[in-house]
Simulated assay, not measured.
Amino acid sequence: MGKHRSHSPSAFMRKPSETTRLIITTIIGIVAGFFIGNSFHTVSITKVLLPSGIISFIEDRNTGQATEAMLNHAFSSEKNQNSNHSNQLSAEDLKIFVPTNPKGAERLPPGIVAAESDLYPRRLWGDPSEDLPSKPRYLVTFTVGYGQKANIDAAVKKFSENFTILLFHYDGRVSEWDDLEWSKRAIHVSVRKQAKWWYAKRFLHPDIVAPYDYIFVWDEDLGVEHFNAEEYIKLVKKHGLEISQPGLEPNRGLTWQMTKRRGDREVHKVTEERPGWCSDPHLPPCAAFVEIMATVFSRDAWRCVWHMLQNDLVHGWGLDFALRKCVEPAHEKIGVVDAQWIVHQVVPSLGNQGQAQNGRAPWEGVRERCRREWGMFQNRMTEAENAYYKAKGISLPNKA
């Protein structure tokens, strides 16, 4: 007969006991997990939306401390949002909309809006507040070609460290100015075959040049032997000129009597032109008039003039007759500074940037466009003013 295996009571009880312990352990784990999960309710990482810039920043292995600081800031913002939600604030309540902000920035809190900029170079290191030991108060721009390098070098040396120097290069030859010490501190903008007012419209927006009290928009062919920029500014302020230019040497490059230098005074604002040219002594070319070769604008005047510049009319012909619309009274705030005078050398270097067509020299096509733009600008101004008065219900005589 086979042996019969005996079973003790303890053997029968072991299996049910282990099952019970497993069940109890599972229940305890579930309960503990529930309470632990609730304890982390105030910090929900899944709700923190990190911008892509922060994510890429986190991936930099050498920025551990900065990453920690940014994450702390993100979690702090999330905590503040949760606090707001606890006060029963809706998502609509938390939306920002400030109609007085600049257009397009209405959804930003006013404290973060930087509506203006500047042309001050900044360092790539250090504390931003220590970048600028001084801030130039004035801006001078020259539209240049390499052929006038020596002349521009002489001109720039007439401007103190109170001036930011900005060169617009129409011939693309920028690196060839590097041997001039001041050129290393200047700002260079290079776009080939463009004219002065094309650059001004695109790179001298009023919100960019806002830190400067005065903006000089000058040609490259000006002799400055008798000119000092700091003294010029003093006279402009003394006589309340918002738009001005230095007097021109009488024997060189003179087109208008208004811009001719007077040897017996500091400033003049009126003149006598040819008979029949000035029906009103307060209007151009006998008053409220300067040329566009060496114009100087106050910050406020430039804000108006910039808006008057046309995107497609790049030579500026006709602009000198319209500058008066930007200051009031124009015959008192536009003038010529005689005590600081210059020579117009009449170098047709920009004309050589034109293109020869139909047997005509490059400069001939440039000059023809200049005259064409003058007529176009006058027509646009007249049509715009007539449309304005018509909308206001004002009828003008044909002469106006």
Rank of each mutant, 00 (worst) to 15 (best):
G2I: 03
S8N: 13
P9N: 02
P16L: 07
T26P: 04
V31M: 15
A32S: 07
K47E: 15
S56Q: 12
I58G: 04
T63S: 15
M70K: 09
M70H: 12
L71E: 03
F75C: 07
N84K: 14
L94D: 08
L94Y: 00
L108Q: 12
P110D: 06
D118E: 07
R122T: 15
K135E: 00
L139M: 12
L139K: 08
F142E: 00
G145Y: 14
L166M: 08
L166N: 00
L167Y: 01
R185D: 05
R185P: 00
K193N: 15
A195Q: 08
K201W: 10
L204W: 07
P211Y: 08
Y214M: 15
D219Q: 00
D219R: 02
E220D: 10
D221G: 02
G223S: 03
E225T: 13
F227L: 13
Y232G: 04
Y232L: 12
K238M: 12
H239C: 04
E242C: 02
G247S: 15
L248R: 09
E249V: 10
W256H: 07
W256N: 05
Q257L: 00
D264I: 03
E266W: 06
E266H: 08
E272I: 15
E272G: 07
C286Y: 00
V290H: 03
W302T: 11
R303E: 04
H307M: 12
Q310P: 02
R324E: 00
V327S: 09
E328P: 04
V337P: 04
Q353E: 15
R360M: 06
G365H: 06
R371D: 00
R380D: 01
E385A: 06
N386M: 08
G393N: 01
I394M: 05
I394Q: 01
P397K: 09
